[in-house]
């Protein structure tokens, strides 16, 4: 190759590789939505199913099978006490809608705002656990000393793998911040 050809070729290679670098940087960001989709499909990290119209449609109730659902809650960094539903565990049939009620109490006089992040375990049950009504990811405000009932309505999809006998629904309550991104 002559010197000029080499230079041209160097420029071309550099150009292509730079494009690739930019592409890979973008790919790093693209992993965020990809990961969310991936989690929803596989139930990785206990991300439970979205509140879609489909999930609200009635499912056939499978009376032959019962699944135990457990409830827990954690509070982090906010002066609230959140009580889990009166019953620690509930036996439900797949397909039937059930409502349980969490209760939040403010422990201070001032107005405080919190939000809850749900998580479901085991991971493989997560995408079959559908919440049709939920206080998750929405800003909840409590004025001083107030208490508030926070209901959750859920349906266990009959497609739940047979080996799953127990599902745990956990909420983590955090102070609400302004930039709430709902990607569950």
């Amino acid at each position: 190759m002559t010197e000029r050809n080499v230079r041209k070729s160097n420029r071309r290679v550099t150009g292509w590789l730079s494009l690739w670098v930019v592409g890979m940087f973008g790919f790093g960001y693209a992993l965020v939505p990809l990961y969310s989709v991936f989690c929803e499909i596989t139930g990785l990290n206990g991300k439970s199913a979205t509140l879609s119209e489909v999930s609200a449609a009635p499912l056939t109730i499978d009376k032959s099978r019962t699944v135990t659902v457990e409830f827990t809650v954690n509070v982090s960094g906010i002066p609230w006490r959140v009580d889990r539903p009166k019953t620690v565990r509930l036996n439900v049939h797949p397909g039937e809608a059930t409502t349980v009620i969490y209760e939040a109490h403010s422990l201070v006089d001032a107005m405080t705002a919190g939000q809850a992040v749900p998580s479901v375990t085991p991971a493989k049950a997560a995408r079959h656990f559908r919440k049709t009504e939920c206080f998750c990811f929405t800003r909840q405000e409590l004025v001083g000393g107030e208490s508030k009932l926070m209901p959750v309505t859920f349906v266990v999809d009959p497609k739940l793998p047979a080996e799953v006998k127990t599902i745990t629904l956990s909420y983590e309550v955090y102070p609400a911040n302004e930039n709430l991104t709902n990607n569950s």
């Binding site: 992993l31 965020v32 990961y35 992040v117 983590e172 955090y174 991104t181 709902n182 990607n183 569950s184």
Partner: peptide, 19 residues
């Protein structure tokens, strides 16, 4: 103020580990 990795903002700390 983004919340890619903060559970409180709807993000996921484990996602950082994957990336």
């Amino acid at each position: 103020g983004t919340a890619f990795f903060s559970a409180a903002g709807g993000g996921d700390p484990v996602m950082f580990q994957h990336i």
